[in-house]
């Protein structure tokens, strides 16, 4: 294609084997109008510097691998286009608030533990054999939790959350959205299963309603809403009202 321009990409580099501090490295990258930031990084890796490290996989904004700070804001690099950042430079850094493993790759282990804490699976009142066929769930019942089931675990919301930055133990937006997703599912017995996680010091009350998490979510999930509806639930639980409602 003829429509090739050049843009500077400045990437944060950190090698745990040799570096004590991260540094910035600059690359001049030729690009066409349909190229994403991710494709820019792939160009660097293939042609300029094979040691630049970043995660990616589906390149269509559904696997959640390629989140990074692009010019200071959390984005999926596969759906952020270089043409929109021209003339640059484009600064790419690992997602804020996470420990850096190498270059743009962050340590995600903490999130996986938080997911465990919220019991991310259906807990039903009674097991029914598969031979009885699927449960009924009306479109309205599906709609009640559907939005929260759209989370791709890309962790942009954690990079957007200063409370998580200040307290890495905060269960945080994505995990609490999934907590809400299961609580709202008509097939789940609801609140009582996950009350401890929501009520904990690092649970919903750690949120101070900054709201940036909901702004950056690439999938239209509204984590701030999930967290804050659960403040109501947590307060009702404290007052004993939840028990009167049968723990839902």
């Amino acid at each position: 294609m003829t429509d090739t321009r050049t843009i500077r990409i400045e990437a944060l580099r950190f090698n745990p084997e040799t570096d004590s501090e991260p540094r910035l490295q600059r690359y001049e990258v030729p690009f066409t109008p349909d190229m994403s930031v991710l494709q820019g990084l792939q160009y660097i890796k293939d042609h300029l510097d094979g040691s630049l490290t970043f995660r990616w996989s589906c390149r269509m904004a559904v696997c959640g691998s390629c989140g990074m700070m692009i010019n200071g804001r959390p984005h999926l690099s596969c759906e952020t286009f270089l043409r929109d950042l021209y003339p640059g430079p484009v600064r790419v850094e690992p997602l804020d608030h996470f420990p850096v493993q190498r270059d743009l790759a962050i340590d995600q282990a903490g999130f996986l533990d938080k997911l465990a804490a919220i019991k991310p699976y259906i807990v039903s009142a009674k097991e029914r054999p598969l031979s009885e066929g699927p449960s009924r769930q009306t479109p309205a019942q599906l709609d009640a939790y559907y939005q929260y089931s759209q989370c791709i675990n890309c962790l942009l919301c954690y990079a957007a959350c200063p409370q998580f930055g200040l307290n890495p133990d905060f269960i945080g937006p994505a995990a609490l959205s999934l907590l809400h997703r299961y609580n709202l599912d008509s097939r789940d017995i609801g609140w009582s299963v996950r009350a401890d996680a929501a009520n904990a010091d690092v649970g919903v009350w750690e949120c101070t309603v900054v709201g940036y998490c909901s702004e950056v979510c690439p999938k239209g999930v509204d984590p701030m809403h999930a967290v804050n509806e659960n403040k109501v639930n947590s307060a009702l639980d404290y007052l004993g009202v939840k028990r009167l409602l049968g723990g839902r």
Binding site: Y121, I122, S124, R128, L130, S131, G133, P134, S135, R136, Q137, T138, P139, Q141, L142, Y145, Y146, S149, Y182, D185, R187, D188
Partner: peptide, 22 residues
């Protein structure tokens, strides 16, 4: 079909008809 039902039990948000069936 049994595996689809199993996924349903585990929470997969299958799209539904107005009466709540698959």
């Amino acid at each position: 079909t049994e595996e689809m039902v199993q996924l349903e039990r585990w929470g997969c948000p299958w799209s539904r008809k107005p009466d709540g069936s698959i």
